[in-house]
Amino acid sequence: MQHLIFVYGTLKQGFRNHPVNQGERVAGEFTTVQPLPLYIVGPRYLPWLVNQPGEGYPVHGELYEVNDEGLARMDELEALHLPDWYVREPVQVREPSGRLWSCQVYFGSASRLQLDAVHAGPLPAYTQEHAEQRVAALRGAGLL
């Protein structure tokens, strides 16, 4: 079975966890239809999209067609089994032409915003600059 997954953080092309994403990229640029809050949180400076429609910005990301095995790898990376972590839920995204796509996305638990430091956000996109800050924080903490 194939699944459409919208990625906005480290699973995007050119980012640290992209090798886990074995899906085929759908051509184009995509943004969430609803504004959503995207933060950078915690000691690992993780991109954290919260399911609070109407807050934040339409979030920019990439769309991938992923098979069951690929989805299982992504679910494992996103630690769906842990409380107060990520969940995979439906979302609608739009390409510049206006075409809408129904897909799934990994939302972070809103409780994390109280449990961990919020370093930035809400943001419209997770960028290479954010990724570099993440690497610097991990190196500084001796985690890389």
Results as ranks from 00 to 15, higher is better:
L100W: 02
S111L: 07
P90F: 12
Q114G: 07
S97P: 04
G121C: 12
T10P: 11
A141T: 02
L71K: 14
P58G: 04
L113R: 00
G56R: 13
Q114T: 12
V59M: 09
L49W: 08
P58M: 05
H81G: 02
W48Y: 02
L38R: 11
G121P: 06
P122T: 13
Y39G: 01
E69S: 10
V93H: 06
W48D: 00
V93N: 06
Q2C: 01
D84F: 07
V50Q: 09
Y45C: 03
G98E: 04
L36R: 10
R139Q: 11
V7A: 06
L123I: 04
E129W: 04
L11R: 13
M74W: 03
Y57I: 00
L82I: 04
L77F: 13
L113I: 01
G23N: 09
L138F: 03
V26F: 03
V91T: 13
R99N: 09
S97T: 15
V26C: 11
N67R: 04
A110R: 10
L4H: 02
N21W: 02
L36Q: 08
D116R: 01
Q104C: 10
R139V: 01
V135L: 15
N67G: 14
L11I: 13
G42D: 09
A125E: 15
Y86H: 12
V20S: 05
W85T: 01
R44P: 00
R25N: 02
E129H: 07
L71P: 03
G28V: 08
R44Y: 04
G108E: 09
R94T: 11
P37W: 00
G98R: 03
E76F: 13
E69I: 06
S109C: 13
A137K: 12
E24D: 13
H130F: 07
L63A: 14
E76T: 15
L138G: 00
Q114M: 06
G56A: 14
L46A: 13
N51T: 01
S111D: 12
L115T: 00
D68A: 12
Y8W: 07
L77Q: 14
G98V: 03
V135Q: 13
W48A: 05
P83S: 05
E76V: 05
Q128H: 15
T10F: 10
R94S: 12
L143S: 03
N17T: 11
T10G: 13
D116I: 00
L144A: 15
N51D: 14
R134E: 13
A117M: 03
V20K: 05
D75G: 11
A72S: 12
P35S: 12
Q13G: 00
E29N: 08
P83D: 11
A117W: 02
H119V: 00
E65I: 12
G56M: 14
L82P: 01
S109K: 11
L77M: 14
G54L: 09
F6R: 02
D75I: 07
L113D: 00
G56S: 15
L4Y: 08
V66F: 03
G56N: 13
H81I: 00
L143H: 05
T31M: 06
G108R: 09
H60F: 03
L115K: 07
F15K: 04
V118M: 08
Q128K: 15
G42M: 09
L49N: 10
L113E: 00
V33T: 11
R112I: 01
Q22R: 15
P96H: 07
P83N: 02
L80I: 08
W85V: 01
P53H: 09
A136P: 05
Q52V: 04
V41S: 01
V105W: 03
V41D: 01
Q114D: 14
